[in-house]
Design a protein around this nucleic acid. Structure first.
Lengths: 132, 132
DNA sequence: CTGGATCCGATTCGATACTG
DNA sequence: CAGTATCGAATCGGATCCAG
C-alpha cells in the first residue's frame, strides 16, 4: 500500500489503471453491468472487438477477479460471464466515467477540431516560411 | 450522439474511453489535479513515464481540451500544464476510479495470485496426463 | 458455440541523440 | 528546460484455421 494516496507514485495502482485501459476492458465491464452474458452476446455487444481480444480481455478480467466464468456442460457449450461482487463495485466508478464521456463528448469533439485547425494553420505557416 | 446510452455501441464514446486508457492519461490527469505543473515536474511525478510518452500524452490531452499549455518565453523555457474546466470536470470520475483501485487493489492482487495458482495447477495436471 | 493456436503486419514505446 | 527525430524491440491485434 502506497501512502499517501498518490497513484502516480504507486507502481501497483498505476499498473492496474493502465491494464484497465487496455481498450476493451471498460467496454466489456459496461456491457456486463446489464447482467450475465454469453460469449457471443458480448462479441455482438462490444462493437469492433475481435474474438481474440474478447477472449483475452475476459481472461484478464477473470484473473483480476472482476468477472466470473461459468461453463454449462451442454452441447453445444454454453459459457456465461458475469461481474463478481468486486467487479460490480468497480463498474460503478467506471460507469461514471462512461457517463461523463457520453454527456460531454461533443465538447471533446469540438476541442479536437479546433486543435487540429490551429496546428494545421501552424504547419501551413511553417511551410510558407520554409519555402519562401 | 448515440441513443440509447450504450457506450459499447457508440463508436465515438468507445473510442474516447479507449484513448483515455492509453496507460498514462489517467495518471497525468490525477497529477494535474494538484494544480499547474511544469513538464519536468510531471515527468518526476508520473513514475516510469518516458519523456516521449509524457509529450505525446500531454499533446493528446491538450487536443481533447483537457489540458491547457502555457509557454513562458523565458530562458530557459518554462512550460506549464494545467487542467481546463472540462479537464477538471472529467478528472472527478477519473479520480473515483483511481480511488477505487487504490482502496481495492489488494483484492485484485489476491484474485490474481489465486487465478495464477489455479491455472498453474491445471497446466500441471495437463502435463501429468500428457506424460502418463 | 466457445474458444485455442498460429501467422504476420501494424502499432507502441523506450532509448538515444540532437536542438532552441 | 522542454521538447523533436529516429530507430529497433516488443507488443498488439486481426485474420484464419482448427477442435471439443
Amino acid at each position: 500500500m502506497c501512502s499517501p494516496y498518490d497513484p502516480a507514485q504507486c507502481p501497483t495502482v498505476s499498473e492496474m489503471l493502465s491494464r484497465l485501459g487496455d481498450k476493451w476492458s471498460v467496454l466489456v465491464i459496461m456491457v456486463l453491468r446489464k447482467g450475465p452474458q454469453r460469449f457471443s452476446d458480448l462479441k455482438r455487444a462490444v462493437v469492433g472487438i475481435s474474438q481474440r481480444m474478447l477472449t483475452l480481455t475476459l481472461r484478464a478480467l477473470e484473473r483480476d477477479g472482476m468477472v466470473k466464468r461459468t461453463v454449462y456442460p451442454t452441447v453445444p457449450p454454453r459459457v456465461e460471464y458475469e461481474l463478481t461482487e468486486v467487479g460490480q463495485s468497480f463498474s460503478e466508478p467506471i460507469e461514471a466515467v462512461g457517463g461523463w464521456v457520453f454527456n460531454n463528448y461533443s465538447k471533446i469533439h469540438d476541442a479536437r477540431a479546433e486543435f487540429d485547425q490551429r496546428t494545421a494553420a501552424e504547419r501551413g505557416n511553417d511551410k510558407l516560411i520554409r519555402i519562401g
